[in-house]
Amino acid sequence: MRCIDQLNGVVCFRHIVWLRIALTSFLAPMFIASSVLSAAEAPVPSVVVSLVSTQDVTPQVSHVGRVEAVAKVEILARVEGILEERSFREGSVVQKGDLLFRLETENYRLIVDQKKAELAGAQASLKNAQADLTRKQSLRKKKAISQADLDSAEAAEASAQANVLLAAAALKRAELDLSYTEIHSPITGQISRSRFSVGNLVNEQSGALATVTGIDPIYVTIALSEKLLIDARRQGLDLENPPVAPFLTLSDGSKFDQPGRFDYLSPEVSLTTDTMTARAVFPNPDRILIPGQFVTVSVRQKAPVSAILVPQVAVQKDQKGFFVLVIGEDSKAQVRYVTPGDQVETNWVIKDGLVEGERIIVQGIQKVRPNMPVNAVVGE
């Protein structure tokens, strides 16, 4: 009975082994198929891509510049008188020739009238002297008078001519003084506050009545390193047609929309700063630029330069060199070796290896392997 039990035990064990083998052989293909199915249904990684494009990489350097007025004129009184009228609004833009101040004129008109009368008297004396000279010349021919009488008549006529010239000059001076009672703006610009009010007595020693500042066009000056200009001087500086042009960025970060041009370079290096002053002139019709303010001056080469730029984060490096991951038409990642050039802010110039329009991965690179399909999303 024990042997039977043992035999039965052996039989039962053998049945269990064969049963496991049978089950394994039957279920193995199902497990393999399930694993393959799971791998096939694994989610495709999403990556952010950037389109390769050609961009402007024209060389430029930036400097801090200061805005300066093209002209600044102090308005002075050239004659003495009571200020009777102020014809401008303080802080406004005045045009060349606009009336700014008017002084009392009555006294100067009287002087003009007086000088006119003196001129008329001198002209009358001249006429009389000329007539007397003509008579004496005729008498001298007849030997009716002496040569001394004729010489005296000639001297009187010359003196009368001189008196006419003096009277005419005095009249012009009086008329000029009368014109100075009206003070006009010599330039177009923005006028300051008036330093004198109506009713004040002003003269040549009173100082500036107001100041007119020319702001269109306007200057911007920058200090350039002497070393920076060595190559430029070797090639020859041509201010009539310089190879570079200045562009402005304002203090709020916005770009000034008016183009400028260089018109002056100092002839010597400053002994204290080891720099040379360069000056550019800009149109300023909207009065955006104000004398004294600071701006950023970008000096750019006039001839534009274009190149392929890619973000630095897209460029990787291995033992073979620099590479990027390019998304092909089959939506798979491909390794593409490239030749990087200069750095432009957060981008790299790519000299060789990419063409415009290709898609490169810029985010999610760590999730991708070569020839792996990806879900590409174009970044902003």
Score class of each variant (00 low, 15 high):
residue 266 S to E: 15
residue 266 S to R: 15
residue 267 P to L: 03
residue 267 P to N: 10
residue 268 E to V: 12
residue 268 E to M: 09
residue 269 V to K: 15
residue 269 V to Y: 08
residue 269 V to L: 07
residue 269 V to D: 03
residue 271 L to D: 14
residue 271 L to Q: 14
residue 271 L to K: 15
residue 272 T to E: 14
residue 272 T to G: 08
residue 272 T to A: 09
residue 273 T to Y: 03
residue 273 T to D: 04
residue 273 T to S: 01
residue 274 D to W: 04
residue 275 T to D: 00
residue 277 T to C: 00
residue 277 T to W: 01
residue 278 A to L: 10
residue 278 A to R: 08
residue 280 A to S: 02
residue 281 V to F: 01
residue 281 V to I: 04
residue 282 F to K: 08
residue 282 F to W: 05
residue 283 P to M: 05
residue 283 P to H: 02
residue 284 N to D: 05
residue 285 P to E: 01
residue 286 D to P: 00
residue 286 D to G: 00
residue 287 R to P: 00
residue 287 R to H: 03
residue 288 I to D: 02
residue 288 I to A: 07
residue 288 I to S: 07
residue 289 L to V: 00
residue 290 I to K: 10
residue 290 I to E: 04
residue 291 P to E: 11
residue 291 P to F: 08
residue 291 P to Q: 09
residue 293 Q to W: 10
residue 293 Q to R: 12
residue 295 V to F: 06
residue 296 T to N: 11
residue 296 T to C: 07
residue 296 T to A: 06
residue 296 T to V: 14
residue 298 S to T: 13
residue 298 S to Y: 08
residue 298 S to N: 14
residue 300 R to A: 03
residue 300 R to V: 05
residue 302 K to P: 02
residue 302 K to I: 13
residue 302 K to Y: 03
residue 302 K to G: 03
residue 303 A to E: 14
residue 303 A to K: 14
residue 303 A to C: 04
residue 304 P to H: 11
residue 305 V to L: 12
residue 306 S to K: 15
residue 306 S to I: 10
residue 306 S to D: 12
residue 307 A to E: 13
residue 309 L to Q: 00
residue 309 L to M: 03
residue 310 V to A: 02
residue 312 Q to M: 13
residue 312 Q to K: 14
residue 313 V to R: 13
residue 313 V to P: 00
residue 314 A to C: 01
residue 314 A to E: 01
residue 316 Q to G: 01
residue 316 Q to T: 07
residue 317 K to W: 02
residue 318 D to M: 06
residue 320 K to T: 07
residue 320 K to W: 03
residue 321 G to P: 06
residue 322 F to G: 05
residue 322 F to R: 11
residue 322 F to N: 11
residue 322 F to S: 06
residue 324 V to Q: 02
residue 324 V to T: 01
residue 324 V to H: 01
residue 324 V to S: 01
residue 325 L to K: 02
residue 325 L to I: 04
residue 326 V to G: 09
residue 326 V to W: 07
residue 326 V to A: 07
residue 326 V to D: 08
residue 327 I to M: 05
residue 328 G to A: 05
residue 329 E to T: 10
residue 330 D to P: 02
residue 331 S to F: 04
residue 332 K to Y: 02
residue 332 K to D: 07
residue 334 Q to W: 11
residue 336 R to M: 06
residue 336 R to A: 08
residue 336 R to I: 06
residue 337 Y to C: 04
residue 338 V to C: 10
residue 339 T to A: 09
residue 339 T to E: 13
residue 339 T to Y: 11
residue 340 P to S: 12
residue 342 D to H: 14
residue 343 Q to P: 05
residue 343 Q to Y: 12
residue 343 Q to L: 12
residue 346 T to A: 11
residue 348 W to R: 15
residue 348 W to Y: 15
residue 349 V to K: 03
residue 350 I to K: 11
residue 350 I to T: 09
residue 350 I to L: 05
residue 350 I to W: 05
residue 350 I to M: 08
residue 351 K to F: 06
residue 351 K to Q: 13
residue 351 K to Y: 09
residue 352 D to G: 10
residue 353 G to T: 08
residue 354 L to E: 14
residue 354 L to N: 13
residue 354 L to D: 13
residue 355 V to C: 00
residue 355 V to I: 15
residue 355 V to S: 13
residue 355 V to N: 14
residue 355 V to Y: 08
residue 357 G to V: 10
residue 358 E to C: 09
residue 358 E to L: 05
residue 360 I to W: 09
residue 361 I to L: 02
residue 361 I to M: 02
residue 362 V to W: 02
